[in-house]
Amino acid sequence: MADHAVPHFANDAGAPSIQIGAHEFMCIGATPPFDHPHVFLDMGGDHEIVCPYCSTLYTYRPGLKAEETDPPGALWLTPVAV
């Protein structure tokens, strides 16, 4: 994952919860320009956390890689300038 040192997730689908493979990450709400302030979330020893901006419930699932999500497609990567 060369784009971000910490994975960034967006919930464009409006899913009530997203399973992820990381305990520390950034929630951006939806993809820009509809994003909320990019907030760093750290589950610590817990396995779930709710984003204070968009109320998405993120649940840690050990079988997923840091950049994988369920439902799929929630990883956000900064667009590459051409």
Rank of each mutant, 00 (worst) to 15 (best):
T59L: 05
Y58D: 10
E24D: 08
P33Q: 10
F25K: 04
L41R: 10
G63T: 03
D42T: 11
I28S: 01
T56H: 01
G29C: 06
V39Q: 09
A22M: 06
L41Y: 06
S55C: 05
I20K: 10
V50Q: 15
G63D: 11
H23L: 05
P37M: 12
C51T: 10
I28G: 00
P52L: 05
A30I: 01
M43N: 11
Y53G: 03
A30T: 04
P37W: 12
L41S: 12
I49V: 15
M26C: 00
T31N: 04
E48L: 08
H36G: 13
A30R: 15
G45N: 15
G44N: 14
G29M: 04
K65E: 06
L64D: 01
M26W: 09
E67I: 00
M43F: 13
C54R: 08
G29P: 01
D35H: 11
K65F: 02
D46M: 06
Y53A: 08
F25T: 06
M26G: 00
L64I: 06
P37H: 13
M26S: 01
F40A: 06
R61T: 03
T56L: 01
L64R: 03
T31L: 01
I28H: 01
Y60R: 06
L64A: 00
Y53S: 10
I49K: 06
G44H: 13
D35K: 12
F25S: 05
G29Y: 00
L57P: 00
H47L: 10
R61I: 01
A30Y: 01
Q19I: 03
L41P: 12
P52V: 04
S55R: 10
F34V: 02
G45L: 07
H36N: 14
F25D: 07
G21R: 15
G29H: 02
L57R: 10
D46R: 13
A30L: 04
P52T: 08
G63I: 00
M26D: 02
Y58E: 11
V50L: 15
E67L: 09
H38T: 09
L57S: 10
S55G: 02
G21T: 12
L64H: 01
T56D: 00
V39F: 06
K65Q: 07
L57T: 11
Y58K: 05
G44A: 12
S55T: 12
T59A: 08
P62S: 10
D46G: 15
I28V: 09
L41I: 14
H47A: 08
H38Q: 08
E24C: 04
V50E: 15
Y53E: 13
P62G: 07
H36P: 02
S55F: 13
M26R: 04
F25C: 07
